[in-house]
Amino acid sequence: MKKKINFIDVIIIIGVVVVIAGAFWYFTKANGDTAVGSSNKVEITFVAEADNLQNDAVQQLKVGDILVSNGVFQDGKIQDIQISKSTEVVAIDGELIEIEIEELSKITVTIQGKANKYGPYVDLGGQEIKAGSNYYIKTDTFEAFGYVVQILEVKE
């Protein structure tokens, strides 16, 4: 069977090509910003803290404990733990004073692990690692909601 390509078919083909090219341009336009597609593993060391915890609960966390996330152990462990009393600021006789709360503790932990890095975005076990970000300090026997305080080192 012999088929001829007519004028309409050509217009349709051109139309389809233009639509594809337009869609490609629209979804990949950079706006001058630098987007990063692929990830690489980095070794990260950072400090996280959780405050206002029950005194007994913080005893559960030990140096060497392995991080848990999404129901599995992660490639990260607790390197150092500092336990202190939680504090709050009160006003007494006209002065602002920081006082300790006896029944509550604050833990400051140093964590080292292998994280995924996508350009400026670093995550360990699905949690973003940036100073100020929310962070769950979680092992198989302990969990506390806190924050990332400081990034100490990122090694490619």
């Binding site: 600021v89 006003a91 007494i92 006789d93 006209g94 002065e95 602002l96």
Partner: peptide, 12 residues
């Protein structure tokens, strides 16, 4: 504060 006065100062 404990005397009922409003204290505005640098947060320690």
């Amino acid at each position: 504060d404990n005397n009922g006065d409003v204290i505005t100062n640098v947060d320690p």
